[in-house]
Amino acid sequence: MIRPSIVLVALLAVIALLPLAGDAYALRLGTIACMYGIFALSWNIVGGFLGYPSFATAAFFGFGAYTTGVLMTLGASLPLALLATLVASLVGASVLGAVLLRLRGHYFAIASLSLVEVLREVVNNATDLTGGGMGLNIPLASNASILGDAIFYFYAMWIALALTAAMVVAVSASKLGFGLACIRQNETAANMVGLNTTLYKSIAFGLSACFVGVAGGIYAVWVHYIDPSDVFDILYSVKPIVMSLMGGLGSPVGVVCGALVYLGLEEVVWRNYIQIHSGLLGLLVVLLLLFLPHGLVSLRGRLFRRGTGHA
């Protein structure tokens, strides 16, 4: 675990130096890179460590965006709103996890998928609080220049990413991480030897939600305007899976690399083929699964000893 952690820290440090490149475009890309890193690392807790195919990322993201957004319109300060979002996501997802993670395999996948639809519908209907389908305008958090603003949100997202990475490393080195690996390999046996599987799974679900929620909050403040179909976009659930598959399931360094590679591909595709970008994403998924099921890592032999992670 030591060497991958060093690689991870180095990777984060490189990303942190990005503002030296200067222009707002690089910063925007960097902010999204951090956001995708958070998605991939967080998804990896449930999808990689625990081995449950979760499609709930978009639900956490939208929940976080709306929690922060609503709190800010009610007059809370940004740090307070983000902290509240963190706690609310952690608690909410843990409770939900205790119910949803009783389901296995396909059932869990679809339940987590429909969670996104349900939250979108609830937000759409709660017009008084969220503005419904009209969306929500979020007050500006600072009055800095455009570049100053960009640097501020970049570092906000970067700090969230660093915290996520620290949390993931801590989890994988702890008893919790060991327990999750046991559940992945054989849940019934883990239960038999006295592991409280429900508790472990529910904590894992909460941890995989909390920083995605914070990322959603930062995103909401960053773009100033959110609407349900934007933040509850099912593609937010799929992207981390693709990133993790690219980077190699179960390996924190791998999934962050996967996130960066994915962002690069996405940027090229978006820029050149906007009308067919989701189709190309689909094509990428299909080709990846058929020809490179163990991720880009497998191209270079077994450089990193990955966890045997397979959902």
């Binding site: 189709g279 994403l281 998924v285 299909v286 699964l289 058929l290």
Partner: peptide
Amino acid sequence: TLTFGLDLI
């Protein structure tokens, strides 16, 4: 995920 990719296409 494979059928999801096909669905996207």
